[in-house]
Nucleic acid binder design. Structure first.
Lengths: 236, 236
DNA sequence: GTCTATAGAATGATAGAC
DNA sequence: GTCTATCATTCTATAGAC
């Protein structure tokens, strides 16, 4: 009787095991806190592949174990549960995504160049980004009510938004972009890019490269950027 | 041994049962071919809700039966398998989506008005459209190798693309839009709109209405449409 | 057409040997 | 750390009564 009701919430009601800020469960963490663990990185990479290609529910522990050439039980040595593995996978992916995004920012280069790199990044790193979008989308609906994961995802998008608008603002301040609303423009760009990610999954004939170049051209028009350096504060 | 290999392909290897152009399996079709069947429509509507909210693998036959207040076995009276139900659900959804889209075209109205209606449609019919996008995305990956479903989805997007570019072409011909490439512009618009759909699922604070209005404004600029009727072939 | 009951397969997870 | 073996549960699907 209580069983049939519980079947809604896929979270196993057993080992709740709080305190999970780190990636690994405590038994598996070495003296170094479990970081720089090659083995685990491979686990997470394989999981990311599978969870993104199919989704949480359709990927079985066996699938993951098989992909790694190890036994099912070993996964439970490193992670509490399938859900826990998923959580770690997402957090790992967010971390990588951050690195990609930050790498573009650190350079003190011309905003137009950074913006171009940003767009090209979406083409060259397509595989990683689209995986991330798919997992984020999958998360909603199969894990409603896991605030840690939700926070990871939102934190990433927030960072992305801030970075994009910052780049645009810099361009405006230097007088090479038209004085648009940076945040609004940033949101427009990244929303379109997300559209590209879905479409390239859904539509077999979608031309990602062309779609991004199209955006590129239109953004340059919207920013009134001709490709040549403009005189400072020409328009304002 | 062969069992462990087969576990990859989730399609049960049993009742393959070809000849499935219609929605229902033959035992369940009345003399009218099974169309206009209220009961089945309810089945499909409930399935759509669930499959979109969660996904194929995480929705169980029991979930669907419970949502409908019927017994599990009844679903197998109407459909061959879970996969078959999914197929019927998608095809039903595509049909509805077509109607929505066509309804906007039939009117012989001003292209600018149709385009506006198109965008507003994405806000008001958000629930249906986003369900469609999510299911389409879910399909890839959990049903790789089901050409019928794939075709349904691609057919819809193809129709959408044609319609949008047609509207834009009309506007150009009437001299109220700038002479852009209609297909390219159409693709740009619908890609962005798909981006809106994902984002509104992923990001809890995404403002769909604002995002679409933003697009609207930018499209008007790109088409050099001021809101007032221009003189015929002012620019060309 | 709709239900009860249940078979048969697959899955998440654990205990315990090495 | 990694594996073998296995349990409990859940799920799809079928048989058959009404």
């Amino acid at each position: 009787m209580s069983v049939s009701l519980r079947s809604k919430m896929k979270q196993p009601a057993k080992t709740v095991r709080r305190a999970r800020s780190p990636v690994l469960k405590k038994e598996a963490r070495g003296r170094n806190g479990g970081h720089g663990n090659d083995r685990v990185d491979k686990f997470l990479a394989a999981s990311l592949d599978l969870f993104a290609e199919r989704n949480f529910a359709s990927v079985t522990i066996k699938d993951i174990a098989k992909a790694l050439g190890v036994n099912t039980a070993l996964i439970y040595y490193y992670f509490d549960s399938k859900t826990d593995l998923f959580r770690a996978t997402i957090e790992h992916a967010v971390g990588n995504a951050f690195e990609n995004v930050r790498a573009l920012d650190d350079k003190n280069a011309d905003p137009a160049a950074i913006l171009t790199a940003w767009l090209e990044n979406h083409v060259s790193k397509y595989a990683e980004i689209h995986r991330f979008v798919k997992i984020a989308l999958d998360f909603r609906g199969s894990h409603e009510g896991n605030p840690e994961i939700a926070e990871s995802i939102e934190r990433f998008y927030d960072e992305e938004r801030k970075m994009l608008s910052k780049i645009i603002r810099q361009g405006i301040d230097r007088g090479i972009f038209k004085a648009v609303d940076p945040l609004r423009m940033g949101q427009f760009i990244s929303t379109y890019l997300d559209g590209c990610m879905v479409r390239s999954v859904i539509l077999s004939d979608f031309d990602l490269d062309m779609a991004v170049r199209d955006l590129h051209a239109r953004v340059w028009v919207m920013l009134e950027y001709s490709g040549k350096q403009r005189m400072k504060s020409r328009r304002r």
